[in-house]
Design a protein around this nucleic acid. Structure first.
Length: 476
RNA sequence: CGGGGCGUGGCGCAGUCCGGUAGCGCAUCUGUUUUGGGAACAGAGGGUCGUAGGUUCAAAUCCUAUCGCCCCGACCA
């Protein structure tokens, strides 16, 4: 049925790329690993941006913009940070035809430039908290890239906040984590686990890294957003201090947090099917595609007239497209909108004109329904809500079905190989066990879940006592 | 960096082994008939075969070099 899209069961990775191509979401740029985001893909990003941006602003954050180019020496000021990022930096060595005195890196992330500026902006406890976000592009020289999931250049938002106390920074870190979870679940309809990253997986330069972690249809994990408590690491590296209420000088406490265009990859791999993209209604650039059907010019006029009347007051309420192109036939249009992931399709032809009905089709289920023309607006709104809900529930059920409690390492190894999924296992925090796990199974500890109850058990690697379970999975 | 694959009209490919008029499908344009799940027919336009050198009467095809991209792995949001 869907020409040109490889089935998920045949080759998941090929399927993913085919979905993107069929929906015209992105294309390869001329430089290896770089991606052109086409209008269909970018519209989804814009929808994500506008929702997230509103959430940040509601919680007191403001937007600003910092430069793309950073002096190389800045990266080196924070020991762990340089170690983590130096290998993947693109470095500018020449400008204006001359070799630069100091090389300049294209930002892989902006902590260093931003903290170099915060040094000038923060003097007193009265200047805190400083809650800044920026929407930007960053470059990381990755060895292996994949559209949306990992590209050399990607778009993201990065929040960088400064606080007077550790507790306040920690509170901010968790607040943002909550926003990310809410966004992922309520808008993307993508259920996520929240939790702390292990030391091994922690952001270079952070004291604590929290993440939201989602399960894709192939049962692999996708880290979909991170929120870091940076402690005083960057304040110390850039010597950012403030005077406290009682006159003492202290280093500022920091956080940083981000989500990227990777979310689009997550969206695709959570909901789409063998017929192409499926976009949840709240983020769909087009929520309803209307396909009129006619044979004669008279029929065309009548059908379009009726549809115009029905949609007369939809402007600003429902994002819809009346597809009245006459160089394509209905079947072609059905397919086209399907590949684009439009949640609801309405069909109306001569038959419906007479019966005062029309046909409503849901993209995610293929379910068709005849609805009275007098109630289209209500029915469509109802359906959009319902689809949003069903997509979330479907994804959640998939995650639940593929999440397992396992108490032996040998069983974990077997099952990781054969079925994938999330495994809740006891681990007592030893780095060596974590390294061994990755080496032997390619899987990693994704999160130490926030909502997991304390439970006495034995670490499956060492047999030592453990008080909690962590989530192990193979990841993107 | 290792393994695999590929560079030929806009896109997808065949042709390369065995040198001899650059081809097919899709897309595009024109016209007619069509239109409830990817329309049919007729016609048309569009290519220095990744790049550079070599062999030859003759190179997409053989030789040498080189550049690039994609997929799979190690590393990563």
């Amino acid at each position: 049925m869907a020409k040109g899209i490889t089935k998920r069961s045949v080759d998941y990775s090929r399927w993913y790329l085919d979905v993107i191509a069929a929906a015209q979401m992105a294309d390869y740029g001329p430089v290896k690993g770089c991606m052109v985001i086409r209008p269909t893909g970018y519209a989804i990003w814009e929808a994500m941006q506008s929702e997230l941006d509103a959430m940040f602003k509601e919680t007191g954050h403001v937007n600003a913009y910092f430069p793309l180019l950073i002096p190389e020496s800045f990266l080196q000021k924070e020991a762990e940070h340089v170690e983590g990022f130096a290998p993947e930096c693109a470095v500018v060595t020449h400008g204006g035809g001359k070799k630069l005195e100091e090389r300049v890196v294209i930002r892989p992330t902006s902590e260093t430039v931003i903290w170099s500026m915060y040094k000038n902006w923060i003097q007193s406890y009265r200047d805190l908290p400083l809650l800044i976000n920026q929407w930007a592009n960053v470059v990381r020289w990755e060895m292996r890239t994949r559209l949306f999931l990992r590209t050399m250049e990607f778009l993201w938002q990065e929040g960088h906040t400064a606080h007077a106390t550790y507790d306040e920074a920690e509170e901010e870190t968790l607040k943002i984590l909550g926003i990310y979870k809410n966004f992922a679940e309520e808008y993307m309809a993508m259920p996520v686990l929240t939790g702390l990253k292990t030391e091994k997986e922690r952001f270079a330069g952070a004291v604590k890294t929290y993440a939201i972690e989602a399960m894709m249809q192939d049962r692999r994990a996708l880290q979909a957003g991170t929120s870091h408590n940076l402690g005083q690491n960057f304040a110390k590296a850039f010597d950012v201090t403030f005077q406290t209420e009682n006159g003492k000088l202290e280093h500022v406490w920091a956080t940083s947090w981000g989500v990227s265009t990777r979310l689009i990859g997550g969206l695709i791999m959570t909901h789409s099917d063998d017929n192409g993209l499926v976009v949840p209604p709240r983020l769909a650039p087009v929520q309803v595609a209307i396909v009129p059907i006619w044979r004669s010019d008279d029929e065309k006029t009548a059908v379009l007239e009726r549809l115009h009347a029905i949609t007369a007051d939809w402007q600003g309420k429902i994002r819809f497209k009346l597809d009245d192109r006459d160089n394509y036939r209905p079947g072609w249009k059905f397919n086209e909108w399907e590949k684009q992931g439009v949640p609801i399709r309405l069909e109306m032809g001569p038959k419906d004109l007479a019966s005062e009905e029309l046909v409503m089709v849901k993209r995610h289920s293929g379910e068709k329904e005849r609805i009275p023309q007098s109630a289209v607006y209500e029915k469509v709104n109802e359906a959009l809500e319902q689809v949003q809900q069903e997509l979330f529930e479907r994804a959640l059920a998939h995650r639940e079905k593929n999440s397992h409690y396992v108490d032996s390492y040998s069983e974990l190894k077997e099952r990781l190989k054969d079925e994938g999924g999330f495994y809740y296992v006891h681990w007592n925090g030893k780095r060596e066990s974590e390294d061994k796990l990755q080496e032997e199974t390619k899987a990693t500890i994704r999160v130490i879940p926030s909502d997991q109850p304390e439970e006495n058990g034995q670490c499956i690697f060492t047999g030592e006592a453990s008080s909690r379970r962590v989530v192990v999975a193979k990841a993107y």
